[in-house]
Design a protein around this nucleic acid. Sequence first.
RNA 1: GGCGCCAUCGCCAAGUGGUAAGGCCGGAGCCUGCAAAGCUUCUAUCCCCAGUUCAAAUCUGGGUGGCGCCUCCA
Length: 467
Amino acid sequence: MYIYDSVKKEKLKFKSLKPKQVSLYVCGPTVYDDAHLGHAKSALVFDLLKRVLSHDNYKVTYARNITDVDDKIIKKAQEQNKSIKEITDTYTTAYHRDMSALGIQAPDIEPRATESFEAMHEMISALINKGHAYATPAGDVYFDTASDKNYLSISGRVQNEEDTQSRVESSGQKKNATDFALWKSVSDGSLTFSSPFGEGRPGWHLECSAMIEKHLSDQDEAYAVDIHGGGADLLFPHHENEAAQTRCSSNHELARYWMHNGFVNIDGEKMSKSLGNSFFIKDALKSYDGEVLRFYLLSVHYRSNFNFNEDDLLSSKKRLDKLYRLKKRLFGLKVVEEKTSFIEALKETLSDDMNVSKAYALIDEMVSDINEKLDANPKDKVAKREATSNLALVESLLGFGLNNPFEYFQHGFDTTIKTTINDLILQRNEAKKEKNFERSDSIRDEILALGVNIMDTPEGTFWEAKE
RNA sequence: GGCGCCAUCGCCAAGUGGUAAGGCCGGAGCCUGCAAAGCUUCUAUCCCCAGUUCAAAUCUGGGUGGCGCCUCCA
């Protein structure tokens, strides 16, 4: 396995801390709204990573947190006159529903900030004791960035006093402009938690470091986890600060490898609420099968920015269609697992920093190859056996091709229309049998008008939704 | 202003020193009663300039054009 480390900025041969085991921590969502395509991209990328590592015989422990303490959550609760818990429960459930629709497997551990206060308190205390954090007269506890000589080693930034000070609003009580809150003193009665440092709320960066120590870390290792991932925007300040907290409160660095996925833009523009172009997964799912979205969102290398647009999605879907048409040809066959050159090639390609583009190319070529063989000899048992093995791997490694191939092509058609179409097909076949092609073609026009294509095959007449 | 990323066929997109993958679209053909599907086949020298090298899309320098982070953010 090779992984591009976004801190070292080079592709490295992956070496796990413990033999054949991998600890993976990914920054999850703050649950104050529905998940958008950006959340999907990140979750998909690391879902794929876990699958690739697992197929490489690593035992992967994957943790992805839920941030359920946050100012935005409080704001939302006030706006909607609901409790904090109602908000976080609603959107946590929604997040799980959307991720599941995209074929994303649940992480092994899903820690929540509200369940991790003890670990956070311990980390703050350790930082204070070691002289890396201080309390202000106002009751806040800040991390002292000047006390960490390796601060900024993650993002590779250069400290620039003038610049930083002009852009960061200083509370006046911080020692350095870059210092960040570990514990914020709050006493307005909104949402507070008691702590050894007074009533308040934890700083955002703290929960990840604390939960990693609690759930994944081994103090004897030089790194808390093998891999830490998240969106590219988290590199600074979030991951920089996480790393500082861990480094200064314990004896190890946070992660051996850092992975950051690129952004999802909509029609060339950054997705944001202010631009009014946020694209929620649940809305996308109204028009497209979850697997189609998965296939499309995964189709571009994870480190590149992804420009989402409907035209590209549709041409991407046509690629997945070909996989499903092959599945139709193989429908009902039992999978007999056997090694094929395709399987080896696919695993190897994905082990190269998840080269999905090349993986898709391999799939396209494999599908064409099998089709060609089946065209030449529809009973080619060897080809069929190979094909089922190949597709089984695609399903488990990439997570698509899992649907019933007939239903896949009929997304969005209800039973009534399906019945109508099937009736028309029966009528058309009657006409064809009588060689009444005028009638059969006019029936076909009727069927086409319903938004479907039909195809006559040796196995019967099948129909698919157009586009 | 600081730090960083990117620029490959009409569109999407791999390749990062050894002579341009794959998909979509389009053309031609095979198959088909005709279609659809499937198959075959055709279509780029890699933003510009200079340099290093036997050899560069791939390295270096300089342009031009996009974009990201620096404030909450996947």
